[in-house]
């Protein structure tokens, strides 16, 4: 660890990602929950419409990765602080790592592979740009 200095890297990352997360989280909350009808406007069409737009795809990817890695590193520190039994600590850290990787992989897949216009769905549930069937 002396050469890599992982703990130092983690400390710097928490601060840098925190600053970026402020911008991402508040943009996310404003766009999803306050603009154009607010939280009531969220439905499949709204989400699928956003995820069909490359800007929101990359925005949500950044939010997903940064929040998950930031939160995971934070939880790692908390576990190190409070869990002193080595076995239990290892189990929790492993569960944490597995759940983070799963969520990052699944989330990223959804962001980039979601079909905004599934066949056979009534048009009023779909984003406006879907071709009429």
């Amino acid at each position: 660890m002396k050469t890599l200095r992982l703990e130092r890297l983690g400390w710097i990352f928490m601060r840098l990602s925190g600053v970026v997360l402020i911008a991402l989280i508040f943009t996310h909350l404003t766009v999803n929950l306050m603009q154009d009808g607010g939280v009531k406007a969220i439905d499949f069409a709204f989400v699928a419409g956003k995820l069909a737009n490359p800007f929101w795809q990359w925005f949500d990817t950044a939010l997903l990765w940064l929040a998950l890695i930031h939160g995971t590193n934070g939880m790692r520190v908390v576990i190190q602080d409070y869990v002193l039994r080595p076995r239990l600590r290892k189990v929790l850290l492993t569960l944490l790592a597995v759940s983070t990787v799963t969520l990052i992989v699944l989330g990223t897949l959804v962001i980039f592979t979601l079909d905004p216009c599934p066949a056979g769905t009534p048009a009023d549930l779909l984003p406006s740009f879907c071709p009429a069937v």
Binding site: M1, K2, E7, R8, W11
Partner: peptide
Amino acid sequence: LDILNSKEGVWRCR
């Protein structure tokens, strides 16, 4: 600083 850069060094401070 190298000593305090270790796993149990300054970075544990919250």
